[in-house]
Design a binder for these strands. Structure first.
Length: 790
RNA sequence: GCCGAAGUGGCGGAAUUGGCAGACGCAAGGGACUUAAAAUCCCUCGGGAGCAAUCCCGUACCGGUUCGAGUCCGGUCUUCGGCACCA
C-alpha cells in the first residue's frame, strides 16, 4: 500500500483544526513556557515561495519537540499587513487596499496550513486591523507624552512623482525605485522618534545576547556607531558668531588648515561675503538636487566653495578659511575642522582646491596620501612628542580647562523618521488645533477613514482627501488631524508582545501574561532585518521596559537567520528571473512531509543554498521507506532485537540534541541511518518503533500522525505523547576501531573496548604493528595510538 | 574601503576539545527482479600508480605550530551578506 499523502494530509489538517490541537492555554503556568516566533510576513501578491518556509519549518520542528517535552509552547503566526503594494493596487483600481490585503492573507494562510505548521491560529495578528493598531497608536502616544516623539522640520527625500517621502533604500541612482521619478531634498515637518536617546542602552544590551549571531550584533554596533571625541568651538573672524565641530582626532587640531560647513548649515547665509554669494547660492541649489546616495558615494572628487569668511583655530589662533562642501553631512554639528595631512577626505578636498596640508604626526608620505596612523606629534605646541592616544587626552583636558571645547560621545544612529505620506498605514493620532495646540486623540483606535481616492495630491498625503475625517472640533476648538501615517516598521516593533494576549481590549497585553511569557525564546527570520526591524523592536521594548510594561530588557533571547534559498544555478530566486518555485506545486507532487524533510536536509539552515528538484528524490524515498516499514512490512513486534539497541539509543540522543541546536540536516541523516538498518532486520521492536516515529513527527507531522494512529494508538494523538528517552550507557559504543600509527602514518587498526586500560591498548597496538619499543608513545583514549621512532 | 560569514568529490553537504577526511543524500556506472518500464533491492563511486597486497597525492593558495591540522596561528586570493564621505 502506497503512502497516499494527499488524503492523509487533508485528514490531519482538518483534525488539527477541529480539535484545536495547537491552541495554547496562556494561563497554564504549571509547565515551563517556550515562545517560538517567526518574523511575520508581508502578504504580497506573489504568495510564498519555497524559500520562505525554511525558517518556519525550523521553528515548527523545535515547537513540536518542545510540546512533546512538556513545555507550554506559544507558536503564533500573523501578517505585517500594512504596506505599499496594497496602496498601489488601491490607487490603480480605486478598490480598498484591505480587499487586496485580505485576499493575499487568505492565500498565505492556505499555503502555511498546507505545510502543516503547528501555529495557534486563534492568536493570529493582522497589523492593519484596528484591534491591533490601536495599541501601536497607544505606544506612540506614550512616546509623545514622554518627549520621545517630535514634530519638526527634517530634510527628507521628496519624490514629486509619487507624492511621498522615500527612505534611502527606496532610491536608486537618484530616482525612485518604483516609477523612476526624480527625488530631491526638501525640508518638511515630520514626526521623528528619538531613538538616539536609547543609543547607549541599545549598545550595552547587545552584550546580554549570547544567543544572537555575532554578525547581527556587530551590524547593530556599527549602525549605532558610537565614537568618542571632542566638540571644539571655532569663532568666526570679525563677528560674535561661532560654530562647533565634532572630531575624533582632537590631537590633530594644530594641523587644521581650513574648516568645512555642510551646505544646509544655518551659519552659511550669515557669514558668506558678498563676493562669494553667487557661487555659494549656486552650490547650495545644486546640492539640493542630489540624493543622500549620490552625496555619500565615496570618491576623491570632493566639491565645495569658499564662503569668503574665516575662523580662528582655538589652539593657535591661526586664521582658517571657511568652506562649504557636501561631503560634510547634516549630521552631528554639521561642521568639521579639516586636517588634510591626517584625514583621507580632507586630503582629497585640499588637493582639489589647493588648500595647504600641514603635518602634525610623523609617518607616511604626504605626497601620496593622508597619514592616519599612530606616530609622534610635531608642530603641535604642547602636544609635541606625544603619541596619538596621549595627545588626544592632553588636548581635550586643555580645551576643557579653557572652555574651548569638551569631550563628547557621538552616535551615527539618527532619529527614526516616523511619518509617511501614505494611506495604508496606522494613522498618527494627533490633532493640530487652530489655537496652535497639538493634542493627542483620546479615543483609540483612530481608524482609517473609508475613501475612494487614494492618490496623494499637491504635496499632501492621501488622507488629506478625506475632508470630513480630517477636520475636527475638540472642546469647541477647530482643528485638523495629522494626515501622515506610520512607517511599516512601527507594528513589528512590538507585535511580539501582542501575540501573548491578542484580544485584550484594556491593555496591550495582560501584565501577568507578559511577565510569564516574555522574552521570545527562539526568533527566526531574515538577516536583512539586522538594523531595521530588529533595532526598532529592541528600542520599543527597552522603552516599554523602562515604563514597566515589558518585563524584560531584551525581547528576543535566541535569534537565528535562515540562509537565502537560491535557484538551481545558485542565482537569487526572484519573480523577475522567473525561477520562483511555489511550495504548493511541490506539495502536490511529493507531499508536505517530503518538502519539509527536503528543506531541512539541504544543509545548515543559516547557510545560503541552491534549490535542487532532483535532490528531493532522496527525501521522498526516506518518507516512503518509513511508510513501508511501518505499514507494509510485518516486522514491528513486541520482541527485542539486540542489533538495533545501540543504534536506537544513539539515534534518540543525536536527533534530540540536533533539533535543539537547529542542526536538522544531521538529525535527518541519523534517522536515515536508523531506517536503513531497520529495513535490513526482520524484527523492529515495538518500543523502538514507537520512539522513532516520535522523533520523526516534528519534522514530518502528517505521516507520523497517521502511523501513530494506525499502528500504536488510535485515540490519543502523537502530539500529546512524551518525547522518547535514551539510555546514555546504551547510546555510546562498547567497542571502537582505532588506528595505530607509526611516525604519524596509519599502519594498522585494532578493535578496543571503550575506555579500555591504556597498557592493554598499547600492548595490542605494538603487536599489531610489530614493534617492541618506541621513542614516544602517544595515546588518546578511544581515538588513536601513535608510535614515534627516530 | 570597513564589518561579518564562508571556501571540502560530478553535486547538496558530514567530521565533539586538533586524532581514520568525504557520514547521509543526489547524480553516474554495473547487476538482480520484470515480457518491458516504473518502483524496489545489491555492488562500485576523490585523484594517480599497480594483476595484487599496497603505495603516493588530496579539504582555495603560501608559510608556521604540533607526534598529528579541514579544524589552531600569520599572510594571500576568491565568493557571499551587511554598512558605506559619520569627521
Amino acid at each position: 500500500m502506497d503512502f497516499n499523502f494527499k488524503d492523509i494530509e487533508a485528514k490531519w489538517r482538518e483534525r488539527w483544526e477541529r480539535d484545536e490541537v495547537y491552541k495554547t492555554d496562556m494561563y497554564d503556568f504549571s509547565k515551563p513556557k517556550f515562545y517560538a516566533l517567526d518574523m511575520i510576513p508581508y502578504p504580497s501578491g506573489q504568495g510564498l515561495h519555497v524559500g520562505h518556509p525554511i525558517g518556519y519549518i525550523s521553528n515548527d520542528v523545535v515547537s513540536r519537540m518542545k510540546r512533546m517535552q512538556g513545555y507550554n509552547v506559544l507558536h503564533p503566526m500573523g501578517f505585517d499587513s500594512f504596506g505599499l503594494p496594497a496602496e498601489q493596487y488601491a490607487i490603480n483600481t480605486g478598490n480598498h487596499p484591505g480587499d487586496f490585503t485580505d485576499k493575499n492573507i487568505a492565500t498565505f494562510t492556505n499555503q502555511l496550513k498546507k505545510l502543516g505548521f503547528s501555529y495557534d491560529w486563534s492568536k493570529e495578528i493582522k497589523t492593519h486591523e484596528p484591534e491591533f493598531y490601536r495599541w501601536t497608536q497607544w505606544i506612540f502616544e506614550q512616546l509623545y507624552k514622554d518627549g520621545y516623539a517630535e514634530h519638526k522640520p527634517k530634510y527628507v527625500n521628496w519624490c514629486e512623482g509619487l507624492g511621498t517621502v522615500l527612505a534611502n533604500d527606496e532610491i536608486v541612482d537618484g530616482k525612485s525605485e518604483r516609477g523612476g521619478f526624480p527625488v530631491e531634498k526638501r525640508l518638511m515637518k515630520q514626526w521623528t522618534l528619538n531613538i538616539p536617546a536609547y543609543a547607549e542602552k541599545l549598545l550595552s544590551g547587545l552584550d546580554e545576547l549570547p544567543e544572537w549571531p555575532n554578525s547581527t550584533k556587530e551590524g547593530q554596533r556599527n549602525w549605532i556607531g558610537k565614537s568618542v571625541g571632542a566638540e571644539v568651538e571655532f569663532k568666526v573672524e570679525n563677528s560674535d558668531l561661532s560654530f562647533r565641530v565634532f572630531t575624533t582626532r582632537a590631537d590633530t587640531l594644530f594641523g587644521a588648515t581650513y574648516c568645512v560647513l555642510c551646505p544646509e548649515h544655518e551659519l552659511v547665509k550669515r557669514i558668506t561675503t558678498p563676493e562669494q554669494k553667487a557661487a555659494v547660492d549656486d552650490y547650495i541649489a545644486a546640492c539640493a538636487k542630489k540624493t543622500d546616495m549620490e552625496r555619500s558615494e565615496l570618491n576623491d572628487n570632493k566639491t565645495g566653495v569658499f564662503t569668503g569668511a574665516y575662523c580662528i583655530n582655538p589652539v593657535n589662533d591661526e586664521r582658517l578659511p571657511i568652506w562649504i562642501g557636501d561631503y560634510v553631512l547634516m549630521y552631528g554639528t554639521g561642521a568639521v575642522m579639516a586636517v588634510p595631512a591626517h584625514d583621507t577626505r580632507d586630503y582629497f578636498f585640499a588637493r582639489a582646491h589647493n588648500l595647504p596640508i600641514k603635518r602634525v604626526v610623523e609617518g607616511g608620505n604626504l605626497d601620496e596620501a593622508a597619514y592616519v596612523g599612530d606616530g609622534v606629534h610635531v608642530n603641535s605646541g604642547i602636544l609635541d612628542g606625544l603619541n596619538v592616544a596621549d595627545a588626544k587626552e592632553k588636548i581635550i583636558e586643555w580645551l576643557e580647562s579653557r572652555g574651548l571645547g569638551n569631550k563628547k560621545v557621538n552616535y551615527k544612529l539618527r532619529e527614526w523618521l516616523f511619518s509617511r505620506q501614505r494611506y495604508w498605514g496606522e494613522p498618527i493620532p494627533v490633532v493640530y488645533l487652530e489655537n496652535g495646540e497639538t493634542v493627542l486623540e483620546e479615543n483609540l483606535p483612530l481608524k482609517l477613514p473609508e475613501m475612494t481616492d487614494y492618490k496623494a495630491r499637491n504635496g499632501e498625503p492621501p488622507l488629506n482627501n478625506a475632508t470630513e475625517w480630517k477636520n475636527v472640533e475638540m472642546n469647541g476648538v477647530k482643528g485638523e488631524r495629522e494626515t501622515s501615517t506610520m512607517p511599516g516598521t512601527a507594528a513589528t516593533a512590538w507585535y511580539y508582545m501582542r501575540f501573548i494576549d491578542p484580544h485584550n481590549d484594556t491593555a496591550l497585553a495582560d501584565p501577568e501574561l507578559l511577565k510569564h511569557w516574555m522574552p521570545v525564546d527562539l526568533y527566526i527570520g531574515g538577516a536583512e532585518h539586522t538594523v531595521g526591524h530588529l533595532l526598532y523592536a529592541r528600542y520599543w521594548n527597552q522603552y516599554l521596559y523602562d515604563k514597566g510594561i515589558s518585563p524584560v530588557k531584551e525581547p528576543f533571547k535566541k535569534l537565528v537567520h535562515p540562509g537565502m534559498l537560491l535557484g538551481e544555478n545558485g542565482e537569487k530566486m526572484s519573480k523577475s528571473k522567473g525561477n520562483v518555485i511555489n511550495p504548493d506545486d511541490v506539495i502536490d507532487a511529493v507531499g508536505a512531509d517530503t518538502l519539509r524533510v527536503y528543506e531541512m536536509f539541504m544543509g545548515p539552515i543559516t547557510e545560503a543554498k541552491p534549490w535542487n528538484t532532483q535532490n528531493i528524490e532522496g527525501s521522498k524515498r526516506f518518507i516512503n521507506r518509513v511508510w513501508s516499514v511501518y505499514i507494509n512490512d510485518d516486522k514491528i513486534k513486541d520482541e527485542p532485537n539486540k542489533n538495533l539497541e545501540k543504534l536506537y539509543h544513539k539515534t534518540v540522543k543525536k536527533v534530540t540534541s540536533d533539533y535543539e541546536n537547529l542542526s536538522f540536516n544531521t538529525a535527518i541523516s541519523q534517522m536515515m541511518i536508523f531506517m536503513n538498518a531497520v529495513s535490513k532486520e526482520s524484527i523492529f521492536p515495538f518500543e523502538y518503533a514507537k520512539g522513532f516515529i516520535k522523533l520523526l513527527s516534528p519534522l514530518a507531522p502528517f505521516i507520523s500522525a497517521e502511523i501513530w494512529e494506525r499502528v500504536f494508538d488510535d485515540k490519543n494523538l502523537i502530539d500529546y505523547q512524551p518525547w522518547p528517552d535514551f539510555n546514555p550507557e546504551l547510546a555510546r559504543d562498547d567497542e571502537v576501531e582505532i588506528p595505530v600509527q607509526v611516525n604519524s602514518k596509519i599502519k594498522a587498526r585494532i578493535m578496543i573496548s571503550i575506555d579500555e586500560d591504556k597498557e592493554s591498548v598499547l600492548k595490542r597496538a605494538r603487536e599489531a604493528v610489530e614493534i617492541s619499543t618506541a621513542d614516544k608513545e602517544i595515546y588518546i583514549p578511544n581515538k588513536i595510538v601513535n608510535f614515534i621512532k627516530k
